[in-house]
Design a protein around this nucleic acid. Structure first.
Length: 413
DNA sequence: CGTCCACAGGAATGACGGGCGG
DNA sequence: CCGCCCGTCATTCCTGTGGACG
């Protein structure tokens, strides 16, 4: 016990002493909006032109913004809206802006509640019908006579879960407003999400469209350099490290978030090791750790039966890799279920689970035909074995069974 | 050249649990 | 607060299929 406290004391002491690596770790978080957004000038200008009419009190076009994660959509929108709001107060223009993350809000109700609070309308956390909230929102909006710019971030998440009714109402709201106007800025990670939308909603919402392309390695490097100046003390970050971060993230959809994560974790690793500089070595370690953590988390959050399926594949690969096909996996899976005192699912369902694990990348499956001997799937692990052992041995139900020797393998053939 | 293996994977239906409207 | 409805997970039943074997 004292031992643990000692360790904790060390951690605190280390922390209080201050870092020799980080000057300001905050700027590497991906929700940080920097003063300067490299390689997004075009998009900033475009959005600026679209929203500028609001300053003169006229409504502006609705905009739909697309792009994969980590392409700077959220940062650009926040940046432009901030500037716009600033300018509006400066010249006394009746513009208000509101930024909502639809996925975090989760429900239509909470999105509307956020909109209400942005125009200083108090609504209860819960208890009112969605329609009621909407009416209040409309009433107060009308009485204030303003131009409201609403940014709906991760709008695809809301549509997929809740449907497009809220969006439909919002796109039509201007028809019943005279003194005020609402303009929408939709932000989506998913390029295909248009298909989920009612065509009427789509045409109203996408009067303008802005597309954000992934960053290439050079652009990522500029972004990293910009932040690194603030984040790290001078001379801490080597050129090689920054170049590697950019290259690795560029290979992965040009995701700036990934690049920033790599840089931050690399810094943390260097710090913990007591190294004075961040090098390629630390970046590679960081890459490994981020990947490991992602795999670890995805396995850990798996439902029990999927874990058992995964364990079956693991064991089968260990003992007899060329029998790692659906039928054998199902037999072993059933055997493990019996050992665990759990009733097994049907083969149909397990086949579905295998597919789910396949798309998650935890398994690799390949359809093979053995002619006279049927058609099946060859299945192998998509992740290091040690991660599976690591996760499953934390669950005491599985602890005794990880090194289980399958009965039926030794009995048949 | 047809057969038939060992599954794949679609469709319909049922069990369950949680949220929402009245 | 209760009943209803909806989404998710699972089962049942089913049709489809590439190719070695006889």
């Amino acid at each position: 016990m004292e031992n643990q406290e000692d360790i904790l004391d060390d951690v605190f002491a280390q922390f209080l002493k201050g870092s020799r690596i980080f000057r300001n770790r905050e700027v590497l978080r991906h929700d940080y909006v920097p003063e300067n957004l490299p390689h997004r000038k075009e998009q900033i200008l475009r959005l600026g032109e679209i929203t500028a009419p609001a300053l003169k009190g006229s409504p502006c076009s609705n905009v739909l913004i697309y792009g994969k994660t980590g392409t700077g959509k959220t940062a650009v929108v926040k940046f432009v809206l901030n500037k716009l709001a600033q300018k509006a107060t400066e010249i006394g223009s009746p513009v208000k802006v509101c930024f909502v993350n639809c996925r975090l809000a989760g429900t239509e109700y909470r999105v509307l509640a956020t909109l209400c609070s942005s125009i200083n309308v108090k609504v209860p956390f819960t208890g009112l019908a969605v329609g009621e909230i909407f009416d209040r929102f409309k009433k107060h909006l009308e009485s204030q006579g303003i131009i409201l710019l609403v940014a709906l971030d991760e709008i695809d998440a809301l549509i997929k879960i809740r449907g497009d009714t809220l969006l439909y109402e919002l796109t039509r709201i201007n028809e019943s407003l005279h003194e005020s106007k609402v303009s929408l800025i939709g932000i989506s990670n998913d390029l295909k999400f248009k298909e989920f939308l009612d065509p009427r909603v789509l045409s109203t919402l996408s009067e303008e469209e802005i597309i954000f392309k992934p960053y290439n390695a050079d652009e990522l490097q500029d972004i990293l350099l910009e932040r690194a100046k603030i984040a790290f003390y001078d001379g801490v970050l080597t050129n090689g490290a920054i170049r590697l971060c950019a290259a690795l993230a560029a290979a992965e959809h040009g995701d700036a978030r990934r690049a920033l994560d790599l840089l931050r974790v690399a810094g943390e690793i260097a710090e913990r090791r007591g190294d004075g500089k961040i090098t390629e070595f630390h970046v590679r370690e960081a890459q490994e750790r981020i990947e490991h953590d992602q795999v670890y988390e995805s396995i850990k959050s798996l439902p029990t039966h999927s874990k058992i399926v995964l364990l079956s594949v693991y064991l089968l690969n260990k003992f007899d890799a060329n029998r790692s096909v659906t039928g054998d996996i199902y037999n072993l899976y059933s055997e493990l279920c019996e050992q665990l005192g759990i009733s097994p699912l049907t083969q149909r369902r397990v086949s579905g689970l295998i597919n789910e694990l396949d798309v998650m990348g935890l398994l690799n499956s390949r359809l093979v035909s053995l002619g006279r001997y049927g058609r099946t799937k060859k299945i192998s692990l998509g992740v290091p074995r040690k991660v599976i052992v690591e996760v499953l041995s934390e669950d005491e139900r599985f602890r005794g069974i990880i090194s289980y020797k399958p009965k039926y393998l030794s009995s048949s053939q």
